Computed example of a mutant assay.
Amino acid sequence: MAEELFLKDSYIKEFEAVVTKVEGTEVFLDRTAFYPGGGGLENDVGWLEVEGREIEVTKVTRKGNEIAHIVSRELARGQRVVGRVDWSRRYRMMRLHTLSHIIAALAYRKFNALITGGHITPEYAKDDFNVEDKGTLEDLMREAETIAKEGRKVKVYFLPREEAAKIEGVVKLAERMPPEVDLWRIVEIEGVDVQADGGPHVSNTAEIGNVKVMRVENKGKGRKRVYYTVEP
């Protein structure tokens, strides 16, 4: 298993590692800052520098307990590499991801609503909630932007499963629980939200910036979808 650097520090852009296994164009490292995607958040891309050559990482995915880096040319086991995350892409997703937690916290607190689906790309995010009124989500988005601009600190820490599970609302995805692991990774937005989550986030909500609601759709009874983005 690779050391997953992104779990403790979302701001690592560059790192050194050793190739532990190669399966065709799938490269496995002893440590990585590339996020493999999950929970609706897209994976990172970037580059590996090997002996002065820069090789593109076109996709990163989780395979069981391992993380595979899909590269544009084959490497060899034992090679030392320098990994570089496509930071502009990652950082926009971090901003959107933290914003999505604020929105989810408001929906849960005000309407006991859960996220029933969602996806975050570098360009925009979309979330589905089990609410009845489209206006509900429009109001939540305005409130979420106000909270973001207050500059709330975002903390990441780990708690034993039994302790974390006692926190009300620690899971806000409908019909989904964190994996069966002894330690849960917790993302806390000061005064707003405490949630189990494995993805990268900004360290302060002020980094989110200006929020733009693209549209709100009716996806059926008790299911509304909001599309939103953040300004560059």
Score class of each variant (00 low, 15 high):
46 G>C: 06
48 L>C: 03
50 V>C: 08
51 E>L: 05
51 E>V: 05
52 G>N: 04
55 I>R: 07
57 V>G: 11
58 T>W: 02
58 T>R: 00
59 K>Q: 11
59 K>C: 10
60 V>T: 15
61 T>D: 13
62 R>V: 03
62 R>N: 08
64 G>S: 01
64 G>Q: 05
65 N>G: 06
66 E>H: 05
69 H>V: 01
70 I>T: 09
70 I>A: 07
70 I>V: 12
71 V>I: 10
71 V>M: 00
72 S>N: 09
73 R>K: 11
76 A>G: 10
76 A>P: 14
76 A>N: 14
77 R>E: 00
78 G>N: 01
78 G>M: 00
79 Q>V: 10
79 Q>D: 03
79 Q>A: 07
81 V>E: 00
82 V>R: 15
84 R>E: 02
84 R>M: 02
85 V>R: 02
85 V>F: 07
85 V>Y: 09
86 D>V: 13
86 D>S: 14
88 S>H: 09
89 R>W: 13
90 R>W: 12
91 Y>A: 09
91 Y>H: 10
92 R>N: 08
93 M>F: 08
97 H>W: 04
98 T>Y: 09
99 L>K: 06
99 L>N: 11
99 L>S: 09
99 L>Q: 08
100 S>F: 13
101 H>S: 07
104 A>K: 13
106 L>F: 05
108 Y>H: 09
109 R>Y: 07
109 R>P: 06
110 K>V: 08
114 L>I: 04
117 G>C: 08
117 G>R: 01
118 G>T: 15
118 G>I: 15
118 G>A: 12
118 G>F: 12
120 I>N: 08
122 P>W: 09
123 E>G: 01
123 E>R: 00
124 Y>W: 07
124 Y>N: 09
125 A>H: 00
125 A>F: 01
126 K>N: 05
127 D>E: 05
128 D>A: 06
129 F>C: 11
131 V>K: 14
131 V>H: 12
132 E>T: 14
134 K>W: 13
135 G>E: 13
135 G>L: 08
135 G>F: 09
135 G>Y: 06
137 L>N: 01
138 E>I: 13
139 D>E: 13
139 D>I: 15
139 D>R: 15
139 D>V: 15
140 L>N: 08
140 L>D: 04
141 M>S: 01
141 M>F: 05
141 M>I: 00
142 R>L: 11
142 R>M: 11
143 E>H: 07
143 E>I: 05
145 E>P: 06
146 T>S: 07
146 T>D: 01
146 T>W: 02
147 I>L: 15
147 I>K: 11
148 A>Q: 02
151 G>D: 09
153 K>I: 11
154 V>P: 07
154 V>N: 06
155 K>G: 00
156 V>I: 12
156 V>Y: 02
157 Y>W: 05
157 Y>K: 04
157 Y>P: 01
